[in-house]
Write a protein that binds this DNA or RNA. Structure first.
Length: 438
RNA sequence: GCCCUGGUAGUAUAGUCCGGUCUAGUAUCGGCGGCUGUCGCCCGCUGGACCCGGGUUCAAAUCCCGGCCAGGGCGCCA
């Protein structure tokens, strides 16, 4: 065993080994995905982050010592291979590598907990129990490369539009925002909580940095048991000074289009591997009012009293009518958070919106209240105590600009981009009501 | 938290309805052996399982009760 590779630098990733390199010496580092030993000849599939390449060992032509080393190899051994690239008609990729030297960096147990080549597909629960190994499967590497590409595209887009990336606290003092339950933590003997959203902080930042965004983990202590909820998730939040819901909705749909376009261009191999066709949406997205939603649902035989939230089965029906992206606007004020601005001409409805993808809520946002008096009124109407918000309210004494923003769930976006139906599939180490490990 | 369905080798499943040749089948996987062009390699041998606890019965993987766990759905999710 060779426990370090300091004198061996990788010259190529597997995907870079091409027929044009015929005759050239390469150094490859990675893992054994599969071995097919035919007796006189052995085929080793070497996997790295970028794909796989075949290492071909003609056993009768190699030295005994080298042969013994090859015979001892097993699936998932971490190895280095130094050898000569050979152009060939006999592999799907048109190349193979004839090894001259092999180093074993690390071994693996012979009986793996899940099949990594996809012959017998393990259930999600078994896969999550062996997540480190599960993530080695090419399908999972594809999922997380797509997520990475999407996040890069989003950053690029927002930076280009003049947004400044910020970091707000994850540990907060007050649990009085209402709504979602918070996880308590002990903060030097004081009671504190894990943040459920950067909402109040990002609003305050519009009076200094004007246009901000944050991509970060947030926590909700809800006992949800669905395919689209996690207790720890990534939220991409923006907030913009001197802007309204209309402005940030435009920004959001452009960002979605840009992200889909970038992923469909840069991740063709990954999308093909996942057998997923990603459509780049055309703009603008449909804007459907809450009243229109109720009317759509009524035609489907579902009657919802005005002002009520839309239950999940109704959203599913709605998703069948509007199968792709659409906004729902003009929500009843009472169904949205206290900081969403009621319409001036009709305070019963508000300037909040949801971005839907079929039946799933991808993002939500709106124009925020910039008036301290109105915000206090709304807090009271929601049964919240303005005293608990005094630090936030104080910001409104120093020139809070009109502002608007939204938050999009990165995992839900990734589900859309990859075609995965369970949010746990697109989360490296998911945390849900029943899973705290690994 | 509620409802439905399920829990059988490392993994994925058959068997369960209707209890008894089930000594629990198959695939994949692991081990051993053979094989020079595989790419779901092939062939032979071999290893490995009825979630836990209680009950019914001559007899339980199979029926009943409780627990735990999982999948789906609902609720919750400013």
């Amino acid at each position: 065993m060779d426990t370090n590779n300091s004198d061996w630098q990788r010259t190529h990733y597997s995907s870079e080994v091409k027929p044009e390199l015929d005759g050239q010496k390469v150094t490859l580092l990675g893992w054994i995905q599969e071995i097919r030993d035919l007796g006189g000849i052995s085929f080793i599939i070497l996997q790295d982050r970028e794909g796989t390449v075949q290492i071909t060992v003609p056993k009768r032509k190699v030295a005994d010592e080298f042969l013994r080393k090859v015979e001892a190899l097993q699936k998932r051994f971490s190895i280095g291979v130094r050898g000569i690239v050979k152009k060939t008609q006999m592999t799907p990729r048109g190349v193979e590598v004839i090894p001259e030297e092999i180093r074993v960096f690390s071994t693996a147990t012979s009986q793996l907990p899940i099949d990594i080549v996809g012959k017998v597909h393990a259930n999600l629960d078994a896969r999550l129990d062996a997540r480190a190994l599960d993530l080695c499967r090419e399908e999972n590497i594809a999922v997380f490369k797509i997520q990475h590409t999407a996040l890069q595209a989003i950053r690029e887009f927002l930076l280009d539009k003049g947004f400044i990336e910020v970091f707000t606290p994850r540990i907060i003092a007050s649990a009085t925002e209402g709504g979602a339950a918070l996880f308590p933590v002990d903060y030097f003997g004081k009671k504190a909580y894990l943040a459920q959203s950067p909402q109040l902080y990002k609003e305050q930042l519009t009076m200094s940095l004007e246009k901000v965004f944050e991509a970060g983990k947030f926590f909700r202590a809800e006992e949800s048991h669905t395919r689209r909820h996690l207790n720890e998730f990534v939220s991409i939040d923006i907030e913009q000074a001197f802007a309204s819901a209309k402005d940030v909705m435009k920004l959001l749909e452009q960002l979605i289009q840009h992200t889909c376009k970038t992923v469909s261009e840069k991740c063709q191999r990954e999308l093909a591997l996942l057998n997923h066709r990603l459509e780049v949406p055309t703009l603008p997205f449909k804007r459907i009012t809450y009243d229109e939603v109720l009317a759509d649902l009524k035609r489907e035989g579902v009657e919802i009293p005005w002002g009520e939230d839309i239950p999940t089965p109704a959203f599913r029906k709605l998703g069948r009518i509007h199968p792709y992206f659409y906004f729902i606007v003009d929500w009843p004020t009472k169904s949205k958070a206290f900081y969403i601005k009621p319409k001036d001409e009709n305070p019963e409805i508000c300037e909040g919106f949801d971005l839907m993808w079929s039946w799933i809520e991808l993002a939500s946002g709106g124009t925020r209240i910039a008036s301290k008096a109105l915000l206090i009124k709304r807090l009271e109407e929601k049964g919240l105590n303005p005293e608990s918000f005094k630090h936030h309210l104080q910001a409104f004494d120093y020139g809070m600009p009109p502002h608007a923003g939204w938050a999009i769930g990165l995992e839900r976006l990734t589900m859309m981009l990859t075609g995965k139906k369970n949010i746990r599939e697109v989360t490296l180490y998911p945390r849900d009501r029943f899973r705290l490990t690994p």
